[in-house]
């Protein structure tokens, strides 16, 4: 009798303290989640308040103006948006094939030992500070790059469309910044791709090989289709990082805000313009720079939303009805 009573007592009291711990945990977790949300909201609000004069005074001239010339009081952000998109697009186009290649090598081809050596190297690349990439690019890469770019420009000088895309270079510019940026986003794209490839079920690989697939056929037939959603995520993560990258791009893009088809020419990106000018800007100029921050934020949010959509659709197609 007493046994039963004491057992039920301990059951009840244990239940009580467990429930309390559970409640505290839930509140704590909720609070942590909310803190992130609140900080994000405050950043958006305070940046938008600082940017508001530019938005209200300049209106459509700000968002759709094609000249960014603070000395003349012209604050059209399109050249900077253009520069940001071009540089990150170049970086993504260059980095993705290399990163996917490295990830495939590590997961599908190499032995464990070689694979971990490669992983370590790639991870070390991620540890190099942005400003070091910028300095290295400026002092080491630019002198090598300039003649190469100009000889390419010379090769295509007779071909109508290519002539304007691959024009003369002064060493710095979209292509130089994009190339260094590609190096910088390679580690993140590689490691996400690697994780994605590792989620492909071993059984699926065996299934393909058992049908007489070569390794390459197995990769194109099983590994890549399985990974399409994840790879989209990896690419957009890299793109997002490239768009926000500041110091290295500021050193290498040429600080010349204009829209031009010449990928080898100079340009300017949104974050590098903010970084370059904020200390000396005031009034509308300062507000315009804050506005650039707000716009950059919304562009990256937009890309993220598109990415999620793409991933969701690909996922649904994969899983079937």
């Amino acid at each position: 009798m007493t046994d039963i009573a004491s057992t039920s007592d301990s059951l009840l009291s244990a239940g009580g303290s467990h429930a309390r711990a559970d409640r505290i945990f839930r509140l704590g977790a909720l609070a942590s989640g909310l803190v992130v949300l609140i900080i994000l909201g405050l950043i958006v609000v305070s940046t938008s308040i600082d940017a508001w004069p530019a938005f209200s005074e300049l209106g459509t001239d700000y968002f759709f103006g094609t000249t960014w010339s603070p000395s003349e009081g012209l604050f059209g952000i399109l050249p900077l948006v253009f520069g940001t998109i071009v540089v990150s697009a170049i970086a993504t186009v260059l980095a993705v094939p290399v990163s996917v290649g490295i990830a495939l090598f590590v997961t599908e081809v190499s032995t464990k030992r070689v694979g971990s050596a490669v992983n370590l190297t790639v991870d070390l690349l991620a540890a190099v500070p942005s400003v070091v990439f910028g300095l290295w690019g400026f002092y080491q890469l630019v002198p090598v790059f300039q003649p190469v770019l100009n000889s390419i420009a010379g090769l295509v000088s007779g071909i109508p469309v290519l002539r304007s895309i691959f024009g003369q270079s002064s060493g710095v510019g979209f292509m130089t910044a994009g190339t260094v940026l590609a190096l910088m986003i390679t580690p993140i794209v590689t490691s996400v791709s690697r994780e994605v490839f590792m989620t492909v079920p071993h059984n699926d690989r065996l299934g393909a090989l058992a049908l007489g697939a070569t390794r390459w056929e197995m990769i194109t037939g099983v590994v890549l289709p399985h990974s399409s959603a994840g790879l989209t995520g990896a690419v957009l993560l890299g793109l997002g990082r490239a768009m926000g990258e500041t110091v290295a791009v500021a050193l290498l893009i040429g600080a010349s805000p204009h829209i031009s088809a010449n990928l080898f020419g100079r340009g300017e990106a949104m974050p590098s313009q903010i970084f370059r000018s904020l200390s000396e800007a005031s009034g509308t100029f300062r507000a315009s720079l804050f506005g650039l921050g707000v716009c950059l934020f919304f562009i990256t949010v937009l890309i993220n939303m598109v990415a999620r959509r793409v991933v969701a659709v690909a996922d649904r197609r994969l899983k079937g009805a």
């Binding site: 059984n203 299934g207 289709p225 399985h226």
Partner: peptide, 10 residues
Amino acid sequence: MVFQKPNPFP
């Protein structure tokens, strides 16, 4: 070969 766990491709 047919495997233990059905492994259709996605």
